[in-house]
Computed example of a mutant assay.
Amino acid sequence: MSAIHIVRDYPHPPRKVWRAVTDPELIPLWTATGAGARPEGFATTVGATFTFVAKPKPGWSGVVVCEVLEVREPSLLRYSWQDESGGEVTQVAYRLEPHGSGTRFTYDHTGFTGAGGFFMAKILGVVRTKMLTKGLPAVLNDLDGQGNLRPESPLNPKRP
């Protein structure tokens, strides 16, 4: 079985990191360095079903179907992950723990099987590493003390 395991330390408190990784308006800002997925119907409630919608690519609709399996705010979020066209159901877990004056964030995506799963884990691992190394730190750096995106942030969506 293949898996993705990424650990990053951020110089921000766990509550701020939790907000960045669970606020539906902030998630697309840090996933933009990957496939740019936005959550639809996401809530940090066990049993909540939601989709991640990204830009489609050849052979992929861009939609992943998920269900929240476990929540312990602000330290754990675990959800299922399955391409909308079917296939194996995998699991994603975000673990946050205080580390020094910041937060240690552990990302695990498990349950990939067979040769196809091996290659999927490799591809997604590269994308997730970029999101957690570039995308998430940029969002965290642009949040104020209450966890809101600063008005002058270049990450703010363009308003008409």
Results as ranks from 00 to 15, higher is better:
P24G: 04
P154L: 10
L143C: 00
V89Y: 12
P157M: 14
T22D: 13
G59L: 00
T44P: 05
A32T: 06
I4L: 09
M131L: 00
A35H: 13
A54T: 12
V7P: 02
S101N: 03
Y10K: 03
V68W: 01
P74S: 05
D144C: 06
S101A: 14
P39M: 12
V92C: 03
H99A: 13
P28H: 02
V89R: 15
L69Q: 08
M1C: 03
R15N: 14
S80Q: 05
R8M: 09
G86K: 06
P14I: 05
W60H: 00
T106M: 11
P24C: 03
D142G: 04
K134S: 13
G102D: 10
G135Q: 00
W60V: 08
A138I: 12
Q91Y: 13
R128S: 15
L77S: 11
L69V: 05
E40H: 06
I6L: 14
P56A: 13
H99L: 10
H109R: 08
C66D: 11
S2K: 02
V139I: 02
R104H: 07
L124N: 01
G87H: 07
R104Y: 12
V127F: 02
P13D: 04
K122N: 08
L155E: 06
S80D: 12
P74Y: 04
N156M: 05
L26W: 13
D83K: 09
G36W: 01
M131P: 07
G114P: 09
L140W: 02
V46Q: 08
P157C: 13
T110N: 09
F112K: 01
Y94F: 15
V17A: 12
G34Y: 11
E25Q: 14
Q82Y: 09
G59K: 07
P58Y: 09
T22Y: 07
T90C: 09
P137G: 03
F119N: 03
V46Y: 04
V68E: 06
F118G: 13
T49G: 12
E152M: 11
R78F: 00
Y10L: 01
H12V: 08
K16V: 11
T31M: 15
G114V: 01
D23M: 13
R38K: 09
R128P: 06
P74Q: 02
F118D: 14
I27S: 09
C66M: 06
F118H: 13
L149P: 04
H12I: 08
R78H: 13
K130D: 12
K134L: 15
E25P: 03
W18E: 08
F42C: 07
A20G: 03
T103E: 02
G116V: 02
F118L: 13
L77G: 07
H12R: 05
E73T: 02
F50T: 05
E84Q: 15
L76F: 01
D83Y: 10
Q146F: 11
F112N: 06
C66Q: 02
Y10R: 10
G147W: 06
Q146G: 06
P154C: 04
L149S: 08
N156P: 05
L149H: 09
T110D: 15
L96G: 08
T129M: 10
L124R: 13
R128E: 15
L96F: 03
Y10W: 03
T133K: 10
G86N: 11
R159I: 14
A20M: 12
V21Y: 06
A54M: 06
T49H: 09
G59V: 07
L155G: 02
P13I: 09
W30Y: 07
Q146L: 13
S101L: 14
